[in-house]
Design a binder for these strands. Structure first.
Length: 184
DNA sequence: GCCAACGTTGGC
DNA sequence: GCCAACGTTGGC
C-alpha cells in the first residue's frame, strides 16, 4: 500500500531515503501521514504549487508544534486542507522535506507571529519545511469526507478537529486520494 | 456574524 | 492545581 501510494505521488523510496539521510531524526522507515490546514487568505495551494517548497511557520499551538518537532519525519506525506472557505476540504498533497526547525517568524518583532519569549538559543516555536506534490484531481470537500463511512474516525470530524496539524492513518490518506481521483 | 468547541491565561 | 474568563478556530 505504501509503495503504491509512493509511486502515485512520485516519491520513490530512494528519494525518501536520500531526504532521510540528510535528517538528524531517526525513524523506523515507515511513512507517516498528516493533514495540514490553511486559510487560502493566509497561504493558498496555488501559492504552494508556485513555491514548490516552503517553511510552515506561524503555528502557535503546542500540540501542532509537537507534531512538527517529534512526530513528522522527512518523507512523510500530508493532505493540504483549506479552511475558512465556502466549501472547505482537501485540495492537494505535500510531503515533509525537513521537520523540527526553529520558526523564524517568532523572532520577527514586526511580524504578527512574534513571540517575545523566543530567542535564537530558545526558539519556543518550531516549524517544518514542506514540499508540494500536487493538486487533487477532484478536491474532496468536508461534506464528502463526512459522507464516507471509513473516514468517520478522522480527527478532522472529532475531538481535536480544530488542530491545524493532525495525524491521519495510511488508510484514511489512501481513501481520500482514491476518492479524489488521485493527483492532477 | 453566530456560536460550539476547544486552548490559554492568570488569580487564587 | 483548579477554574473562570477570555481568545481562537472554523463550520455554517
Amino acid at each position: 500500500m505504501a509503495n503504491t501510494e509512493s509511486r502515485v505521488l512520485g516519491m520513490s523510496r530512494a528519494a525518501k531515503n536520500s531526504e532521510k539521510s540528510k535528517s538528524a531524526t531517526q525513524d523506523d522507515g515507515t511513512i507517516g501521514f498528516w493533514l495540514i490546514k490553511s486559510k487560502p487568505s493566509c497561504y493558498s495551494i496555488e501559492q504552494f504549487a508556485r513555491d514548490k517548497k516552503t517553511l510552515w511557520t506561524g503555528i502557535r499551538n503546542y500540540q501542532a508544534r509537537n507534531f512538527m518537532m517529534t512526530g513528522m519525519k522527512s518523507g512523510d506525506q500530508f493532505l493540504f486542507y483549506h479552511s475558512n472557505v465556502e466549501s472547505p476540504g482537501v485540495f492537494g498533497v505535500g510531503y515533509v522535506v525537513k521537520p523540527n526547525q526553529a520558526d523564524p517568524s517568532a523572532l520577527d518583532q514586526r511580524g504578527e507571529q512574534y513571540d517575545p519569549r523566543a530567542s535564537h538559543d530558545h526558539p519556543v516555536w518550531f516549524c517544518a519545511e514542506v514540499g508540494y506534490l500536487g493538486h487533487l484531481k477532484h478536491p474532496l470537500t468536508l461534506e464528502e469526507i463526512k459522507s464516507i463511512k471509513e473516514l468517520n474516525g478522522m480527527a478532522l470530524l472529532r475531538k481535536g478537529r480544530r488542530l491545524s496539524i493532525q495525524p491521519v492513518s495510511e488508510a484514511e490518506f489512501s481513501i481520500i486520494l482514491k476518492s479524489a481521483g488521485g493527483l492532477k
